[in-house]
């Protein structure tokens, strides 16, 4: 075999070997970042009180002065869900009377008579009334009651007394919390 042929064979083998070895073993590395976000929801309610004025219009409720026994006054409390989560709702109703001498009488339920809606609201213990269905974001409950009346027959001690009708609205999440309002847990402490 002459030298030229030998050189051709060697060079050819060199090319074949280099290609077979996969000498182009360089690689590429790159990356990208994902910004993953987790958020939490919340619950919140607002007590809204209206009345029907002498013109038949629904207007914001204002304290009644110079109330007369036996007279019926318009007062329409409702609860509004102003947060993201669906909620169970309850309202605590406290009826008091502050006598002229400063004495405060509690549990004056029979002195301050209210026409509770017993269809949409369920009476519970400790003066709580529970709304019988869940309330979604942006929803308003049916009125808890619409009228208030000072009892017609009152002792003289109530002359000049101030009657108080205090309402406290509370809410807890519906999610993972019972199938109805009476089985819900986690109510705020009184």
């Amino acid at each position: 075999m002459n030298k030229q042929k030998l050189a051709v064979i060697i060079l050819s083998l060199a090319v074949i070997v280099m290609v077979a070895m996969g000498a182009t073993s360089a690689y590429f590395a790159t990356s990208e970042k994902a910004h993953n976000v987790i958020t939490s929801s919340g619950v919140g309610v607002e007590l809204i009180e209206h009345r029907i004025n002498d013109d038949g219009e629904m207007v914001p409720f204002e304290d009644i002065t110079d109330a007369e026994p036996g007279e019926i006054y318009s007062k329409i409390p409702q609860v509004f869900n102003n947060d993201d989560g669906d909620v169970w709702v309850r309202v605590k109703v406290l009826r008091t009377a502050k006598l002229r001498d400063g004495t405060v009488l509690e549990e004056e339920d029979d002195k301050l008579v209210v026409d509770f809606d017993n269809v949409n609201w369920l009476q519970g213990d400790n003066n709580y009334y529970y709304y019988n269905r869940s309330l979604k974001n942006g929803e308003l409950t049916e009125p808890l009651f619409t009228e208030v009346k000072i009892a017609e027959e009152l002792d003289n001690k109530y002359n000049g007394a101030t009657f108080g009708l205090k309402l406290i609205a509370q809410a807890v999440q519906v999610a993972n919390n019972g199938s109805d309002v009476l089985s819900a847990e986690g109510w705020p402490e009184e």
């Binding site: 690689y27 590429f28 590395a29 790159t30 990356s31 990208e32 970042k33 994902a34 910004h35 993953n36 976000v37 987790i38 958020t39 939490s40 929801s41 919340g42 619950v43």
Partner: peptide, 15 residues
């Protein structure tokens, strides 16, 4: 309530 968190994951590829 009404809180948030950001969890960064970097995906890396080697070819």
């Amino acid at each position: 309530m009404h809180r948030g968190g950001e969890v960064d994951w970097v995906f890396v590829a080697e070819g």
